[in-house]
Amino acid sequence: MYREPPQTLNKVIMSSQIRKRVNKKITKAIHDFNLIEDGDRVLIATSGGKDSSVLLMELAARLGKFGPKCELAAIHIQSDFADKAPREFLQRMAEEYPQVPFYFKDVAVEARLKEGRKLNCYWCSTQRRTELIKFASENNFNKIALGHHMDDIVETLLMNMLYKGEFSGMPPMVPYEKYPCSIIRPLCYCEESEIIAYAEDADIRKFTCTCEFSKASHRKTIREEIKSLTKGSSTLKANLFESMRNIRMDYLL
């Protein structure tokens, strides 16, 4: 007679499945886009959120075991108005992953505003990205790994089309022309739902963006529109992603 497996066994199986799925997609992304190669020095930008934390865990697990032989380090850039809780969480993660050097850098984002200007997402992002690139360049890191997943990339694609009138997005790898480093996005094949499941399984889904400026972002509106368009289909979402490398120039202006 068939009997249902114990609930704890089901949880173990699900845990194994989600971790294997995310691991496999990261491996495919690294291979498909040559994101990490032998000799690379990779700096992981860590916010303390689910995406960059999963990325850190997965890349750290590969060191000395399989994949390209590279060096890893992680950095957390703390702005002068943001919550300190993610930093405390990352300090604990640094203890759990001694093979990955951690750096913490404070940036006076709000204090840099000129008189009469107001703080906004673009200004904050630009200031933190500038400091990130500067740190990478000064410390000889040739790759900067960001935790953007497929949903982030597809949302950006549609946002740029609707609000900027241009067909552009966030490619899995972007070499900088002015700096000796490239941006890489190893989570590009992973859906946000998979990252959430992984983070919950690993008990690291502790922090989300609480910045008041994100409430007015177009991203949340676009996210709902994508849900409506795809009806929750992973295949349709993946097709939006694939459209960025299957461009038919003869059928564009």
Rank of each mutant, 00 (worst) to 15 (best):
62 R>Y: 05
64 G>H: 09
2 Y>N: 05
66 F>E: 14
202 A>D: 04
120 N>R: 07
67 G>N: 06
152 D>L: 11
109 V>N: 01
104 F>N: 02
9 L>D: 12
59 L>Q: 05
123 W>S: 12
27 T>W: 01
212 E>M: 08
228 S>Y: 09
105 K>V: 07
82 A>Q: 10
117 R>I: 03
124 C>D: 02
143 K>S: 06
62 R>F: 06
237 K>G: 03
200 E>L: 08
100 V>E: 00
90 L>D: 00
122 Y>C: 14
233 S>G: 10
212 E>I: 08
133 I>F: 06
129 R>Q: 05
182 S>N: 07
232 G>T: 06
188 C>A: 13
21 R>Q: 13
165 G>M: 11
6 P>D: 14
119 L>G: 01
68 P>D: 00
211 C>W: 04
41 R>A: 08
45 A>H: 03
20 K>V: 14
82 A>D: 10
47 S>N: 03
135 F>I: 04
71 E>P: 02
244 M>S: 11
78 Q>D: 14
72 L>R: 00
207 F>W: 15
253 L>E: 13
120 N>W: 04
233 S>L: 05
243 S>W: 07
45 A>I: 05
97 Y>H: 15
144 I>D: 01
193 S>E: 13
11 K>V: 08
47 S>Q: 01
142 N>K: 06
125 S>E: 13
119 L>P: 00
156 T>S: 09
209 C>N: 09
63 L>W: 02
241 F>R: 12
2 Y>H: 15
176 Y>M: 14
69 K>H: 15
169 G>D: 11
54 V>I: 11
212 E>N: 07
119 L>M: 13
17 Q>E: 13
48 G>P: 01
40 D>L: 07
202 A>I: 07
37 E>K: 15
180 P>G: 04
221 T>S: 15
167 F>I: 04
96 E>T: 14
108 A>F: 00
195 I>S: 01
153 I>K: 01
19 R>A: 14
89 F>V: 11
92 R>V: 09
200 E>F: 01
242 E>Y: 15
208 T>L: 12
200 E>Y: 06
95 E>V: 15
77 I>K: 02
33 F>H: 12
37 E>L: 14
158 L>F: 13
186 P>H: 07
125 S>F: 03
57 M>Q: 13
